[in-house]
């Protein structure tokens, strides 16, 4: 496979942040009450990932080793603030729903982890592709979990009601349901593709 595409595939499948690396659990559980919310959160995080990966890769030689953590944090926080301001201005309803989790993208282990593990060691193009891959993988995981929870919990998918109300298992749109749904999804993934550890 083309090496560039391989980077994207890596982020999407081989090293999927939610199902394989088990990182970034907080927004995964907190924002997936519906497929739409999960998708939006995933895309916001993907945007921050792409931009921070690219910029950190650009500046990696200008940042001395000892101060690299605070420098990365500032760069990531900048993009998170940009996302915050834009969402507040142009998608206010989504901003209200996602609430606290938007500024919390800055402490998402995935973003800082990827900056440290990949962007600081590769060139800009590769880092950007890695950001896209991991971001897409995260979005995929969040949307999948959101779909499962929305379908089981409210009988709808992206707002379209599919199942009658008596089939709704309300637990899945509440806190415990998030844990259980994610646990079951990871178990399914383990059954299909056992992790090597």
């Amino acid at each position: 496979m083309n090496s560039k595409l391989k980077i994207v595939y890596n982020g999407l499948v081989t090293e999927n942040p939610t199902f394989v690396l088990l990182l970034g659990m907080c927004p995964t559980l907190g924002t997936t009450t519906s497929a739409h919310n999960g998708l939006a959160m995933g895309l916001a995080t993907a945007f921050v990932l792409m931009c921070s990966n690219a910029v950190i890769s650009l500046c990696k030689n200008l940042i001395p080793e000892k101060v690299h953590i605070p420098a990365y944090i500032v760069i990531i926080a900048t993009f998170v603030t940009v996302v915050q301001l834009c969402m507040n201005a142009y998608t206010p309803a989504l901003y209200e729903t996602l609430g606290l989790f938007i500024p919390l993208i800055v402490v998402n282990c995935i973003v800082l982890g990827r900056a440290e593990a990949f962007a600081s060691k590769h060139d800009v193009a590769d880092s950007l592709l890695d950001g896209i891959g991991i971001g897409l993988g995260f979005t995929l995981a969040l949307t999948l979990l959101g779909c499962v929870r929305e379908l089981l919990g409210s009988g709808s998918l992206f707002g379209f009601v599919l199942l009658p109300e008596w089939t709704n298992m309300l637990l899945f749109v509440m806190a415990p349901g998030a844990f259980i749904a994610l646990g079951l999804l990871i178990a399914v993934k383990n059954a299909i593709n056992p992790s090597k550890s």
């Binding site: 415990p176 844990f179 259980i180 646990g183 990871i186």
Partner: peptide, 23 residues
């Protein structure tokens, strides 16, 4: 536990039951 459930999945489901208790 079943092989697929070992590790994180069973931990998450247990956390879910604990969350239910706190509800």
């Amino acid at each position: 536990q079943p092989k697929a459930m070992e590790g994180t999945p069973i931990a998450l489901i247990t956390a879910g039951i604990l969350a239910m208790a706190f509800m």
